[in-house]
């Protein structure tokens, strides 16, 4: 238990991580990097869950369960995403997201 650290610190950290993830997702052209940015977003949410659970309802555990679920889902999602990226690479010989633009008008 980290005493003396107010909840706002955790929330600021989570917000920074979240927007760093969004920024990475929108600016990086490499699909793998974008995937990593997505993980950053998910983890920022996990921190929020944990912080609120700990500070607001210390006797309950729903926030932790949620975090565990998010971690599990993020792991499987990463597997699926990597599979998609491998397929994209086989098909287009690139993982630059700007070159993968066949789905348009």
């Amino acid at each position: 238990m980290i005493t003396g650290v107010p909840v706002q610190y955790f929330l600021i950290l989570a917000t920074l991580m979240f927007f760093a993830g969004v920024y990475g997702f929108l600016t990086r052209r490499n699909l793998i990097t974008m995937l990593m940015a997505t993980e950053l977003i998910l983890n920022s949410v996990n921190i929020n869950f944990m912080a609120f659970n700990r500070y607001l309802y210390p006797q309950k555990m729903e926030g932790m369960f949620f975090s565990l679920f998010v971690i599990a889902v993020a792991a499987s999602e990463a597997a699926v995403a990597i599979a998609i990226i491998i397929n994209i690479y086989r098909r287009f010989a690139t993982i630059n997201v700007e070159d993968v633009n066949q789905m348009k008008f």
Partner: peptide
Amino acid sequence: RGFQSGQLQ
């Protein structure tokens, strides 16, 4: 229709 550019980002 230009909005649908195929650019994910």
